[in-house]
């Protein structure tokens, strides 16, 4: 199985929240806060939301 590569899509976002299309082809919206983003995308089912970080390599709990 091939990994889903979000590297290019997320590269310019260092913080906040990003909504990307469900086929991972483009960014739909970006907001500093999760609630702001939810208000933008509302009930859209064709988006996926992800936290934006500069470096996901140290993404851990």
């Amino acid at each position: 199985m091939s990994p889903i590569n979000l590297t290019k899509l997320l590269k310019k976002y260092k913080s906040g929240w990003v909504a990307v299309s469900s086929d991972y082809s483009h960014v739909v919206a970006h907001a500093k806060k999760f609630i702001e983003l939810q208000k933008i995308v509302k009930d859209r089912k064709d988006v996926v939301v992800i936290q934006a970080f500069e470096n996901y390599y140290n993404y851990l709990s």
């Binding site: 990994p3 979000l6 909504a19 996926v48 970080f53 996901y56």
Partner: peptide, 29 residues
Amino acid sequence: YLAPGQPRSAGIPFVKVIYKNKTKKTTPV
């Protein structure tokens, strides 16, 4: 999923989750 990282892109096991409470819910996260 591959996401931006240093020294190289990060491979992360993400799953899509919709968080719900009564009539409220999130988009898939």
